[in-house]
Design a protein around this nucleic acid. Structure first.
Lengths: 162, 162
DNA sequence: ATTAGTTACGTAATTGATTACGCAAATTTA
DNA sequence: TAAATTTGCGTAATCAATTACGTAACTAAT
């Protein structure tokens, strides 16, 4: 027995999800690299988002991507350093800093699209190979916990035992 | 539209897995807390492992848990500080440091078991609610990539397009 | 018994993300 | 319109885990 995790079943759903996610992220990083594109998977969500919406403030992005706003600032700093995005102060609201893709950033897009297509295809293969679809499972989980949170459920079960 | 992620489908399986894993981990942390037990989810794998095997070296543990050995050292340091584990030099191999639960650590077990039971139950509920089972999906994914890695598949698809 | 190579562990530096905090601009309310 | 509150952003501190590197102990080969 080498891998204790798989034996534990439902007890450690969390850890197993993380493990698979880490694996995929790392593989993605390698792939960009071997294609000679200086891009990291962690940048994808922000980059992709900005490629679809012209301008967004930090908080908007944080909400849409479901990450903390300092994380957005950090990522933005990195992409700005690469020259792929620019930021401007909002005219309507002086507190806001709006991010958008720069020309250089837009020019990079076609190259990235090709790579994203490959990734999308392999992910599609995985999902199709499955008798039980991860994405569907995840959606179901999210819905399950949206209707009643994990912690509420824990509490309730605990109460029910008394 | 608030949540961009779900729209992206197969492109970001990785991020979605991570998000769900993070959610579960955080909920777990709260639950220990609200039960007045000073325990963190990240300790679970090591603790659980040691509760089943009497003594293990750092590297053994790292392999079994599929984490880096510095991570094991770190976790062990924390558990040792709590007084729940102790370590001794191996007599057969002076390089090895063997970890095991202390008496105090063993005494804590029954309390933890109760909590783990609750967690297991709620996880079981999730899984049973699903028309597609996350754990099964994960297992299938792991098998899929074990037979041929993500990166091999990416390369192959790329070749096939030329 | 020396040397070369491997294994086990520890430390340091780095990465990626979070929470906590503070400031300034906008909004609400009295 | 002044005061209180909320919102948007930035910085700092912290956390969890990794990679990279060094050292000591073991093993194998000559």
């Amino acid at each position: 027995m080498q891998d204790v995790f798989s034996k534990l079943g439902p007890l450690i759903v969390g850890s197993r999800l993380k493990r698979m996610s880490d694996y995929i992220m790392r593989a993605g990083a390698e792939f960009y690299n071997s294609n000679g594109v200086d891009f990291e998977p962690k940048w994808f969500p922000l980059y992709y988002l900005l490629s679809h919406e012209k301008e967004l403030g930090i908080m908007d992005i944080a909400q849409k991507l479901n990450i903390s706003h300092p994380a957005v600032i950090q990522l933005a700093k990195e992409l700005e350093k690469k020259g792929w995005i620019t930021s401007t102060k909002s005219k309507e609201d002086a507190r806001k800093r709006l991010l958008k893709l720069s020309k250089k950033g837009i020019n990079l897009l076609p190259q990235l699209q090709l790579i994203w297509d490959d990734i999308r295809e392999v992910n599609r293969q995985v999902v199709e190979s499955q008798s039980t679809n991860v994405l569907k499972a995840l959606e179901e989980m999210e819905a399950f916990f949206a209707s009643k949170s994990y912690n509420e459920r824990l509490k309730e079960y605990q109460e029910s035992k008394k």
